[in-house]
Design a protein around this nucleic acid. Structure first.
Lengths: 265, 265
DNA sequence: ACTGTTCCCGTAGGGTATACGGAATCATGG
DNA sequence: CCATGATTCCGTATACCCTACGGGAACAGT
């Protein structure tokens, strides 16, 4: 109770409450304008660039004016997050099958992170409880529940998939951000650090890596990441589907191959 | 090449290079002392509290003195990260079975994050290339390779598991940090926001959530997270083990083309 | 005492969030 | 036209942050 202003929930759900006032001095801005400006600046120059001073300057008002629209910068960031979560446009399609729904979710979530890399700077442990956040939970729970999983496992499965998708989406976004911020690709970053292998890497202390290296098991960072994502996500989805179709047995050779991948395609 | 000082790799691997100089004024501190102080402060008050001024003050020297030991604050953070990665003490145990190794990795990684919650503020997309980071890669690759997975899938599987474990370890750490920082448990945070369900939640727009709720499918945040972690990790491990079941033999030394990329990423 | 080397650190500059209180601007009623 | 109430607008002040630069201090060896 200490810090909770109680003002953030009405702000998050402001679009379901068209209540307007007619008394007093009319506002020059709106909450939406402030949130949109914050997103625009954070997209361009990072979350820390979206300072109250910078947002206000972009909107042509003084810094303190923003505080009549949002209670604090932390609340503004919550509003920005829920805004882009909602902008994914996750909508339940009862016709689509399970894997198609998950692929849709993964593709939109990855695109969202790449478009708004500052999302990786925000913790979602206590997320903004707005329409965007709830739309995500509804979408994933509906997708899993439609499979007919036991009640106890529905939310487990939805959360496991969500966490996995977010982890790789954040990684991609971070990679894209570093590329544009530092002007250097991950590939050239590794090349620049070639000294690691030449001078510091101890072959005897790392036999498994050395063996895998000699066997050609390492590829570019991008391939590794994308491969791990498709591989792992397919394992999760296979396991979830299998637990609901006991008749179907596992086929060891069947792995993540084209046609079943869940990335944005 | 623009920004790379070339000084960070020698610092990361400083313990393999006991080279000492005897000329010039003897130092009052050491790189280890600076790194340790940084970790201590970040543990107590967060990563942003571990400023150059604060670390210097804790060590009883002027701020600028630190720059004799580390090139920049970003490099200091890299050193702090690799230090705690190494402190997990991941050691390869050929006797243990696959699931025991992964459980060991997960337990140590989670404990590390809870002890050093500031890790969640650090991106590991371009990680510190030091002993701690390499020990982790060696450990996971050794664990997966021992199963006898095809070369092409070893790193995929290792990375998928690592990403999944880190995602939940970060979540736990973030939760612990928020609890101690805000003095409020996640449970009471949710209770405080009960207005969401009473006033803003639209039942018709969220049928799947509503159904699951009425069926008793939601539990405390802690139970949900822990359940999702165990459930998802087991699906990953099941799938990996299953894909190798028939052959059941490890061949680490298989011949293949040499690695054609910069390094294990 | 001199030299080479290294460590130590003061200064200066351009950033950040927000509490507080007063000024400005509107609709309305008389 | 003026008074009133409600609301928006914003200037000020505070205490932090990182690090480039360059000069002074302290040591070993001769």
């Amino acid at each position: 109770m200490a810090n909770f202003s109680g003002r953030i929930l009405p702000l998050l759900w402001r679009h379901t409450q068209p209540a307007r006032r007619t008394t007093g001095r009319p506002p020059r801005l709106s909450v939406d304008a402030v949130v949109t400006a914050g997103i625009r600046i954070a997209d361009a120059d990072g979350l820390e660039a979206a300072s109250m001073a910078r947002v206000a300057a972009d909107l042509g008002v003084a810094t303190m004016t923003l505080y009549t629209y949002v209670p604090s910068r932390a609340d503004l960031i919550d509003l920005m997050v829920d805004e882009v979560l909602a902008a994914r446009g996750l909508t339940h399609d009862p016709e689509a099958d399970f894997r198609a729904k998950v692929a849709d979710f993964a593709g939109r979530t990855r695109a969202m992170h790449v478009a708004h890399p500052w999302l990786t700077d925000v913790s979602l442990v206590r997320p903004p409880l707005g329409p965007g956040m709830l739309a995500e939970r509804e979408f994933m729970i509906a997708a899993v529940a439609a499979l007919g999983l036991p009640v106890e496992r529905v939310n487990r499965a939805a959360l496991a998939i969500t966490a996995f998708v977010y982890a790789f989406a954040r990684e991609d976004a971070e990679d894209a951000r570093l590329r544009s911020t530092s002007g250097q690709s991950t590939e050239s970053w590794w090349l620049e650090r070639n000294e690691l292998w030449e001078r510091w890497f101890d072959v005897e202390a790392h036999p498994a890596m050395t063996t895998l290296w000699n066997a050609g098991g390492f590829h570019s960072a991008e391939e590794q990441t994308q491969g791990a994502f498709e591989y792992g996500l397919n394992l999760l989805l296979d396991g979830i589907e299998r637990s609901v179709q006991p008749g179907r047995q596992a086929e060891p050779g069947r792995q993540a191959e084209p046609g079943r991948q869940a990335g944005p395609g």
